[in-house]
């Protein structure tokens, strides 16, 4: 039957392609085959159904063969993640975050504030004495006065440590407060509620990418000695504007 040949041929070709490359096309092929089968109901229909079964079978086998290991890997990952969270909860609990938040951090902040106060007091005492020396110096002449002048100047310069130390400590206190907020956040997430205040951290994560430098960005405080710019470098930078 010459007329039937092209029809069977046209069905077989897409079916082969569907098995090897495009499983989705098999649906269209089967559908097309059913329509086509109206002209040759029994013979054409039988062949196409068998082909379709083969296609579906192969697709199913393919899906099962590939999806099953992936699913088990996913389950394993989820299981590991759950265990990790449980372990983290135990570790955080062992650290007594409430104690850290309520006792350690405030105590550390208080101690640091006390250091600022003590150094300020000591510096003021030193300067009281130095000013007294200056008063005495006013009644002197010559070399002795000059020597005392040099000494008192050096004392004033050295007293600048209190300002720098104070700024550094203030920075540390600020860092401690930031840690306190993060501990709060951890308690809110992992805490059991019985021993936590459940306060949510209000501090928003700062984006690292800043398009424009704001005044706030410029408040960095004293740099560590190895990173700080020297007066000569500052002078050079200023001069570059002239």
């Amino acid at each position: 039957m010459p007329a039937a040949k092209p029809k069977i041929k046209s069905v077989r070709k897409p079916a082969k392609k569907a098995v090897t490359k495009k499983p989705a096309a098999s649906k269209a092929t089967v559908s097309k085959a059913v329509k086509t089968s109206s002209s040759k109901p029994v013979k054409a229909g039988t062949i196409k159904a068998r082909k379709a079964a083969v296609v579906v079978g192969k697709v199913m086998k393919s899906v099962q063969g590939k999806a099953a290991p992936k699913t088990s890997v996913l389950f394993a990952e989820l299981e590991a993640l759950a265990k990790y969270i449980q372990d983290a909860k135990k570790e955080i609990s062992a650290l007594s975050p409430d104690e850290v938040k309520d006792d350690f951090l405030p105590t550390a902040s208080d101690e640091l504030d006390a250091i600022i106060g003590a150094t300020a007091d000591a510096t003021n005492v030193i300067m009281d004495s130095t000013e007294l020396v200056e008063e005495v110096m006013a009644g002197l002449d010559g070399d002795a006065a000059q020597k005392l002048m040099t000494a008192t100047t050096q004392i004033y310069e050295a007293c600048g440590f209190q300002d720098i130390t104070g700024q550094r400590i203030t920075k540390v206190v600020s860092t401690l407060k930031s840690i306190e907020e993060k501990v709060d956040g951890l308690l809110a997430v992992f805490g059991d509620g019985a021993n936590s205040t459940q306060k949510k951290s209000t501090k928003k994560t700062k984006t690292k990418i800043k398009k424009e430098i704001t005044d706030e960005d410029l408040l960095n405080g004293p740099q560590s000695t190895d990173k700080a710019k020297s007066q000569a470098e500052i002078d050079a930078l200023l001069a570059s504007f002239d």
Binding site: I164, L218, P222
Partner: peptide, 23 residues
């Protein structure tokens, strides 16, 4: 004590006459 370049630049742009870094 602010000794970063961006500080010096910002101060200069704002019209500072000179800049001394602590200490």
């Amino acid at each position: 004590a602010e000794s970063k370049s961006e500080n010096v630049i910002a101060a200069k742009e704002a019209g500072v006459s000179n800049y001394i870094v602590k200490p």
